[in-house]
Structures are given as C-alpha cells and as structure tokens.
Design a protein around this nucleic acid. Structure first.
Lengths: 190, 190
DNA sequence: AATAAATACTTTACTTATGAAGTATTGACC
DNA sequence: GGTCAATACTTCATAAGTAAAGTATTTATT
C-alpha cells in the first residue's frame, strides 16, 4: 500500500493531533476513535514493511503476498483461486503472474483436464527466494513490535480476533444491504 | 486501496486458513500473528468503507482524507504540510488538489510572502459536502464495529495506543513520513 | 447433438499511487 | 551581491489496482 494517513476525522471530534490518528478525545465516537487508531497502527507498520521490502529485496508487497500464497500451497494454485485468496481482480493476477513468471519465481502449468486454466506454482528459485525474504520479513515485524509486552500482544491478538468475528458476522448477513452486496460481489468476482 | 489479503505468511507457521489471516497457530511467531490479524481487521474495514464512499458519494478515500485534513484546519494548509500529514508524496497531493479544485471543494491561494507555495483551504461548498459525508461515514463505522462490547473496544483502543507508542519510539527519526522515506532510500540506494 | 450458460484467463482503458527529475523561489554564506 | 543548497510544487514514467469486454473452453439443458 501507500503510506496514507487515512481518515483523519478529528474535525468532528476534538483537536490534539499526534500523527496520523488525530486528536480524537471526545467521550462519544468510541467506534470511530478505535477505527482511526487501528488504521494508524496498520498503516505505520505496512508502510515500513513495504519500504523495507522494496529497498532490501526490490520486491513489492503485492508480489510478496502472491508468493506467500503459493508457498502455502506447494502443489500450486489456479489463478482464480489466487484471485480470490489475494482479494484482487483476475486482471491483476494475470499481471502479477506475468511479472513473477518473467522473474523466474513462478511457472504456469497448463492443465490437460481443463484447458481454460493454469496451475501456478513456485519454481525452486522462487521458493528459495521467498523463504529467504520471509525470514527477514518476520524479523522486521518482530523488531517493530518487539517493544510490546508479550501479554499485551496476546490480549491484542484476542481482541482483534473478536473484532474479526464481529466483522465476519456482519458480512454473512449482509445480503440485504445493497452496498455490502456489491462489495461482496466485487471481491468474489472474476 | 484495493482489497488485498496481504501477507499471508502461514506457510512459515501452521496451516488452517480462515480468510485473510491464515492458519497461524504455532507457539512462536507472536508478533507476526499479531501483525497479520491487525492487517486483516484493518483491510476488512477499509475495504468496506472505501466501497461505501464510492457508491454513496462517488468519493475516493484519498480525497475524503484530504478533505478531513483541511476540515481540521479551516485556515488552510500548505501542500507540503498536506503531503506530510496524509503521508503521501507531493505528486499525489498535486493531483488530488487538482481534482478537488476542479470539483470546487478546495481552493489554492497564492502566498505573496513565499511565491513557491500555496495554501489550500476548503471552499464553503467543500466544507458542507465534507461534513455531510463525515456524518454518514461515522455511522458506517459504528455499524461495522457496533457488535463489539464497549469494554472490548476500550481495551483494544488502549492496547493499540500502546502499540503506537512502541512504533513511534522506534521511528523517532520519522520512518513514517515521505521525506524520511526518501532520505532512507537515498542512503541505501537501490 | 445443438445451444446456452458458466468459467478461466487475457486484454484494454482508466485510476491512483509512487519515485525521480525538473522548475521556480527562497535563504544562507562567503 | 553572487553562488549554492534547500524548499515547494509540478511533471513524467511506471506500478498496481479496478471494471468491463473479449476469447476459449467446459458444463448443463433440451
């Protein structure tokens, strides 16, 4: 992603900026404050990781994610599955595949039983490269979050799990919401 | 943004996928698991908000953020300040300003005392439009996170504050702003 | 078997971001 | 006062994403 300081909605609240997440201190607006802070944390880390991947490995986050998916599935994945798992459109998968194939990290393998589809798998070169990067990547995350007490991390992990649950619950019942329907369609689509 | 399932690094851990955040269940890797889950939550919400902004208001998140910044500063901001606050590059600010100016939401005002710079401020039209959108926006966030108990939200908010503290402590030399990013790149040269 | 519908991938046009280079202006120093 | 670096903004090339239309192939229906 980019490094954006999204959604600084402090104007509607209080004023006492500290970086991304602005001076949100009113007593109401709990959800909004929470979201802004969550986003700030996420953006901070993502920006840093993205930057380091680029500088250190000449790798974009998109490609790294792509390789990570394949690494979990050594048998390979079809492109539509990649599209779904990575939550990007098919056109994008085509493009990323082209690039990574050219770099020798992945290979398209034609499927005799269904000649519409390809199975993409890591090449040995791609696997080695990814494993090397992933190791360093984890060390970065550990470095970035290392300052947090283990107990806090554990709590945070659980609370975020709860949040995911809430979000997912909404998603499954969202059939009635036109916007949500559209969003769902967009994600799962081609 | 896009809706990407970033950083599915489960291969290096366990295997038991549940959406974005994969089957990370090893006993080590606490930091990585935490980061993946944080990212999953953030991406989920962001995707939904982005989609709704687009459908309901024909507004991108980038522009909405931009307007939010200006709304906090009715006196206006210079473009380089916007760039820093929004954590995007100057070129991007130029582009966003062009669009929003064309839409009549903001105005560039030349500065006699420094003819290199402009101050950008909301027009009355832009202010009204933003306030209307921001109200709806908050209702969306409340809807999305409404399923969480208040106590959980409060705890989560505090823990994320702790995380921000940790991140900020590391990056006192400003890892998160584009200028620093640029400087860093110059040093390591790729 | 013929046709229609769905699926898998590609292509195209467009959007938004980035990084780097370019232009104009200011400020600091000798 | 002239030069040189820094600053503010713009422009340009490129990357990565979307949506929508196109092609080939498979599956289902009748």
């Amino acid at each position: 992603m980019n490094a954006r300081a999204k959604l600084d909605l402090a104007p509607l609240l209080a004023d006492e900026p500290t970086g991304l997440e602005a001076g949100v201190s009113s007593d109401d607006h709990h959800s909004l404050r929470l979201w802004l802070r969550l986003l700030a944390c996420s953006t901070d880390i993502e920006t840093e990781i993205r930057q380091r991947l680029r500088v250190r490995f000449g790798m974009t986050l998109a490609r790294f994610d792509y390789l990570a998916q394949l690494h979990r599935h050594p048998e390979g994945l079809r492109m539509n599955v990649l599209s779904r798992n990575l939550m990007v459109t098919g056109g994008n998968v085509t493009g990323l595949t082209d690039e990574l194939e050219k770099a020798g990290f992945v290979a398209r393998e034609a499927q005799p039983e269904d000649r519409r589809s390809f199975v993409i798998a890591l090449t040995p070169k791609g696997r080695k490269a990814f494993e090397r990067m992933a190791t360093v990547h984890e060390s970065w995350v550990i470095e970035l979050l290392g300052g947090m007490p283990d107990q806090s991390k554990q709590q945070l992990y659980e609370l975020l799990g709860q949040m995911r649950g809430v979000l997912a619950a909404r998603g499954t019942t969202a059939e009635t919401d036109p916007a949500a329907k559209k969003a769902a369609k967009k994600v799962s689509k081609k």
